[in-house]
Design a protein around this nucleic acid. Structure first.
Lengths: 216, 216
DNA sequence: TTCACTTTGTGAACTTTTGCATAACCATTA
DNA sequence: TAATGGTTATGCAAAAGTTCACAAAGTGAA
């Protein structure tokens, strides 16, 4: 509900990648960078990078490139990096626990601040620094902690049911690790991460095409 | 190196999803399915589904739909589901171990059959049914076991170095969980899975656009 | 200041992907 | 057998995304 006129979806998906690499450059003390150098590092075509940036205005200088600090500050604002975003994790199984240990907060403004699990005996404990709640407390906790993003790492069989509960609890975004393609109202966004699919796609491409980076 | 004339990339990425849902339908005893019903379940536009299928020929029957068994058999062949594909995992940390437990084999023809880790003390042990090797044995084992696909879950700092080793060991596909966008020869395919990026993209979309499923 | 060089920003062409809309076709029932 | 209804396959067009290629503009050195 903020923002510029309208950024193409494909561009939007690249923004966090730009942001991360700019952070790296800044930490390394680099002051300037050209679209060609960026292209080498992050593997997007230089013209694509320039066009992406140009959607936000003329951020570079001809004959010079882009000022790292200025660009970083700009994108920090675009991506709202100042505010800390709390995210809930549903399903503290293998993958769920790995994600809790993953520490998103290290490289972004997000962190898993609450986890929920069906196993009631876990409620009240803390895993990887994240408090575990019972599923029955979902709506209450989500509301109280004002969380509107959830990471879904539950068994496929209960994915839709829990999704419905999440929607009921006011969630607006779901990062879905389930292979089930859940149904949600139009004002809720689902981002699917399908690990088996990624692997199978990779295999298919290797067998039928040849080479070159894909994904993202 | 098998296959049809040339399937669009976007279609190729959807194939495993079709395959999985067809498996589900078949297991459930469903004999026929229309593109409209498929669309409901997997959230791709019905016309997109029909067009995807049509790249492989006329697989459906007008006025009837698609025969689940026939379609399943067809895609099993396209995706080479008969042969078991062994995959190596590099970096048995949090995420790596979670992926070992994930058991790709349950829902696909792939399995992690070897894992490698810098921690030499782990070499020789078995984790989640997967034998762990020392990094120094990489090339030898990859060659011996004829593995040409690797899942990369190592710290960013060593990602490029290990990627080079993988390439040297003959790997043709890398599922890269590292945020580093690694450099590889053109005959090697990299599929990036960037968890932080997925979350940040989700947040950006929620804040700046509104709703509807993305990803895959 | 001048000039050679670098690099952006962007029009335009191109490629890829999606989706509409409908003719053709098949299933099914009477 | 004929009529009804459902569903595919696909021509076409629009939308989205990528890349070329170059004028414009600024850099940096002499």
């Amino acid at each position: 509900m903020t923002q510029q006129p309208k950024i193409p979806r494909a561009t939007a998906k690249r923004l966090p990648i730009y942001y991360r690499y700019l952070t790296f450059l800044h930490d390394a003390g680099t002051n300037r960078i050209s679209s060609a150098e960026l292209s080498d590092a992050i593997k997007f075509d230089a013209a694509t990078i320039r066009r992406d940036f140009s959607y936000f205005g003329a951020l570079g200088k001809r004959g010079y490139g882009y000022d790292v600090k200025a660009l970083l500050d700009f994108f920090a604002n675009v991506l709202d990096q100042d505010s800390l975003i709390n995210v809930a994790l549903i399903g503290a199984g293998n993958l769920g626990q790995a994600l809790m240990n993953f520490n998103f907060h290290q490289s972004s403004n997000m962190r898993i601040s609450a986890a929920f699990d069906v196993d009631e005996s876990r409620a009240g404990t803390i895993l990887a620094g994240v408090p575990i709640y019972a599923m029955t407390d979902l709506k209450e906790q989500m509301t109280a902690q004002r969380i509107n993003i959830a990471i879904l790492t539950v068994p496929q069989e209960v994915a839709q049911d829990i999704t419905d509960q999440l929607v009921d609890a006011g969630v607006k975004g779901i990062l879905n690790f389930t292979p089930l393609r859940v149904t949600v109202p139009t004002d809720v966004r689902v981002q699917n991460v399908d690990l088996t699919n990624e692997l199978q796609t990779l295999v298919y491409f290797i067998d039928n095409y040849g080479s070159i980076t894909t994904g993202l």
